[in-house]
């Protein structure tokens, strides 16, 4: 007798994806089970195609028997797209309304969660330097991707995007010129090492690790869009626990904390820039 599939409505792809994610989680600590499904599927399919495999499940033996494969998987499953001073109006508002408040603290701790290749961390360092606060600031910039963190520590970026960086810097209210902060070599810009002194690039997984530090400002942009509701709530409660009373939260311009468990802990400062203050 031929048995009918239990759940005819579920596509085989989806079953394979679930098995693959379970295999990743069982071999390593990385848990992608609570990532938003549609874009995760796209990324897993492009990894499958890159290896010219016919089925997603064929990734499983590669994962199990090749210890180097995980770094490639992470490269595909978490995408590190960023730019210096992305959404410059956000940095402008940070400078105008948050920085003067941060200046009242003897020491400023900033947690930048999901820092990708580091552009956001250096943007903050430049902003704080111009406001003469960098010396007493610690920027803890964390990400799940080791490869991204290595690039971030280098602080070397392609000059192809220089025009965009310069424009963003100006729109963000930069008080000098972006060229004050790097030297060009061939087609790359090398950010000044002094910007790095107060940045600590560290491995941290928002899906399973705990509170990272006591922070005056938490910035986490365009990371939670990849998570399902439950994981997003987990992140937000990490941030709430991490922030001092009256501390600030900055999320992506297309993200929101309405209808999350964190909503009641915050007061919105500016809607457009998604800046929030934790209630006292």
């Amino acid at each position: 007798m031929k048995s009918a599939p239990l759940n005819a409505h579920r596509s085989i792809d989806d079953i394979e994806i679930e098995l693959f994610i379970a295999a990743v989680h069982q071999k390593y600590e990385y848990d992608f089970s609570r990532y938003a499904k549609a874009s995760l599927k796209r990324r897993i399919l492009s990894l499958t195609e890159a290896h010219k495999l016919a089925h997603i499940s064929e990734l499983i033996p590669l994962l199990l028997y090749d210890d180097d494969f995980i770094s490639e998987i992470l490269g595909y499953l978490s995408v590190q797209v960023s730019e210096m001073f992305r959404d410059p109006h956000v940095f402008k508002k940070l400078r105008e309304i948050i920085v003067p408040m941060l200046a009242t603290y003897p020491q400023i701790n900033i947690w930048l969660a999901g820092c990708a290749n580091g552009e956001e961390a250096y943007s903050l360092a430049i902003l704080l330097k111009e406001e003469k606060l960098l010396e007493r600031s610690n920027i803890y910039a964390t990400d799940i991707s080791h490869k991204a963190l290595d690039i971030a520590r280098e602080g070397i970026y392609s000059a192809d995007n220089l025009e965009c960086f310069e424009r963003n810097y100006q729109l963000a209210g930069g008080s000098g010129a972006f060229s004050d902060y790097y030297v060009s070599k061939y087609n790359y810009i090398h950010l000044h090492p002094e910007l790095k002194k107060n940045i600590f690039f560290t491995d941290h997984n928002l899906a399973c690790d705990g509170v990272f530090c006591e922070a005056n400002l938490v910035m986490c942009r365009n990371v939670m869009i990849y998570f399902d509701k439950e994981l997003k709530n987990r992140c937000l409660s990490l941030f709430t626990d991490s922030l001092v009373p009256g501390g600030y939260l900055c999320i992506g311009t297309k993200e929101d904390i309405s209808f999350t468990t964190a909503e009641s802990h915050y007061k919105a400062l500016t809607q457009h820039e998604r800046l929030f203050q934790k209630r006292f």
């Binding site: 938003a36 499904k37 874009s39 796209r42 995408v79 797209v81 869009i225």
Partner: peptide, 11 residues
């Protein structure tokens, strides 16, 4: 998404 919610990505 399958639950008929919209999702954004920066991929």
């Amino acid at each position: 998404e399958k639950d008929l919610t919209l999702a954004l990505s920066l991929d």
